[in-house]
Amino acid sequence: MDKSLKNHHLGEVAFRLEAKKSETSPNETDLYLYGDIGDGWWGETITARGVINALNEIETDVINVHIQSFGGEVFEGITISNLFKQSEKTINAYIDGVAASSATIIAFGADKIIMPVNTQFMIHNPWTYVAGNADELEKVVTRLRKSEDSFVATYMEKFVGTEEELRELLKAEEFLTAEEALAYGFADEIIETVKEPTAGEDIKARLMNKYGQRKPEDQKNEKMNDKENKKSLLGNMANVFN
């Protein structure tokens, strides 16, 4: 018996499909798509119908779609992606943690894909499970190949390389860093996640915000410079008193 085309079960994400006015930009709406994509056997999932309902309720011209998902059903992801493409609103996709498999297809429906520096992006060929005779299995292989072509057609809209290179990347099934996704054309912008310290933060928060992103070699160089400065100061003092 042929099942719906799905992708590997890569991880667990708590479900969330919610639209609310942006706290920082009142003329924008944040739409959260967290969890598996398509019909699921356990709990709630992200569906095209749910996204349609959310889009119909959103009144702002800008929608910031926040994605945290390991993927799910192929054609549900394609449907949601096309809903975004067909929308007259400006849609920005933010990868909050990971966008994998069908979730990346959804992101490709946005006008812009934005990734914080510590997030990841994963693409691979569609996957399914099936039971049946040889004729049924051959039909499933044909469906999978056609689904691969649908994925390639979608990714080639932004991918900087050749189709052959893209197909190799799909076979590799590797998680891409934000930097790699940007280099390959899958992302449009990388943003830092470190916040500027505020007056109400305690000393640990202020220190982490100020020094937490420095590289070890930077700290080593600063210490060496401090030592050299101290030696120079002592040398000058010695010259004064000689």
Rank of each mutant, 00 (worst) to 15 (best):
E59N: 09
K231P: 00
Y34S: 13
E180T: 15
I52W: 04
K3Y: 07
K215P: 08
S232D: 03
M1T: 06
K89S: 04
W42M: 09
T79K: 15
F84Q: 04
W41L: 14
F159L: 06
L33T: 14
R145K: 06
N82K: 12
R145I: 02
P216R: 01
I80C: 10
G72N: 11
T60L: 04
A178M: 05
V62E: 14
E12P: 13
K231Q: 05
A100H: 03
G72H: 09
E28W: 05
D218M: 01
T104I: 07
F70D: 12
F75R: 14
T177V: 01
P126W: 06
A14C: 05
T119F: 01
A183G: 05
T90G: 02
G200V: 00
E180G: 13
A205S: 09
L5H: 13
E164N: 11
E180D: 15
T90R: 13
G200K: 09
P197N: 06
K6P: 05
F159E: 03
F75E: 10
W41E: 12
A172C: 03
E44H: 02
F175W: 07
A172Y: 03
L137N: 03
F15R: 04
I63Q: 12
T193I: 08
L5Y: 10
E138Q: 12
N236S: 12
S81L: 04
T177R: 11
Y94N: 02
N56P: 01
A238P: 04
L137Y: 04
V152M: 02
F75N: 13
K215A: 15
Q86L: 11
A100F: 02
N133T: 14
E189Y: 10
G212P: 10
D2I: 08
V141F: 08
G77W: 05
D61G: 10
N229T: 03
P216S: 03
F151Y: 13
F84I: 11
I80V: 14
G35Q: 15
E44A: 10
I63N: 14
W127Q: 12
G11Q: 14
I95H: 05
I46P: 09
G38K: 00
D61V: 10
S147T: 06
T198L: 14
A48W: 01
V62N: 10
K195I: 00
E44W: 02
V152C: 03
T90Y: 09
F70C: 13
T29N: 10
F151R: 02
V130N: 05
Q219R: 06
E18F: 08
M115T: 11
E163I: 00
R206N: 12
I113M: 08
R214I: 04
V65L: 08
T154L: 06
V194R: 11
L234C: 03
Q219M: 11
L31S: 14
